[in-house]
């Protein structure tokens, strides 16, 4: 039943084509259609869809992420870090400066390492218990959610569970390779 309807439809279409078009015209049109189809993936719409896959990848490309200088905002681990870099405050990207303590809680995101092309899980852990460091202010927002999704937000202070809620700086420890 279904096949008969499809049969009829195609028969009518091919008869109409045969009546209206010359053979040369048909081959030219078909050729153009095939060539056109292969061009589709490079149109901006298709490329945008691919780029939207992972915000960490997009960030790494945009800022020219690097793996050697943890005191610069484009150090690869900082794709979702919002605040003062602990590396500029006497600590490191995964260690707190003297006098501050790491928060026992953090939020976990992922960044692209530009040198091996792999994704790594990064724990964004604030160092707390000392006045704001105010050095190297960076803003990465890859994968960040609005504040009503606080567990994946970096505008709030991540010092929960610690002895002090005073924010000093932001660290970014690698916690795994995806």
């Amino acid at each position: 039943m279904v096949m008969q309807v499809i049969d009829k439809l195609f028969e009518r279409m091919s008869r109409r084509t045969a009546q209206k078009m010359s053979r040369r015209n048909f081959v030219a049109t078909l050729g153009a259609a095939l060539a056109g189809a292969s061009m589709l993936p490079v149109l901006p719409v298709a490329r945008k869809a691919q780029a939207a896959e992972d915000p960490g990848v997009e960030w790494a490309k945009r800022v020219g992420a690097q793996t050697t200088d943890p005191k610069a905002c484009n150090y690869w681990r900082y794709c979702s870090s919002d605040g003062y870099l602990c590396s500029c405050c006497g600590g490191g990207p995964a260690t707190c400066p003297p006098g501050s303590t790491p928060s026992p809680t953090s939020w976990v995101g992922s960044c692209l390492n530009p040198d091996d092309g792999k994704m790594y899980l990064i724990a964004y852990r604030d160092c707390c218990g000392k006045d704001s460091c105010a050095q190297c202010n960076c803003l990465g927002t890859a994968g960040e959610m609005p504040t009503y999704r606080p567990q994946l937000n970096n505008d709030i202070i991540w010092c929960f569970g610690g002895s002090s809620m005073v924010y000093h700086c932001s660290s970014a420890a690698i916690v795994g390779q995806v």
Binding site: T67, D69, P70, V108, Q151, I174, G176, V178
Partner: peptide
Amino acid sequence: PDVLVRRNGTVLPRVSGAAEDYARHCQG
């Protein structure tokens, strides 16, 4: 390829599947 991981010899776990979902959504 990370200056500190190499210098400190930090050993990282490889995480995938449900363990990765735990890491991303619960572990923090």
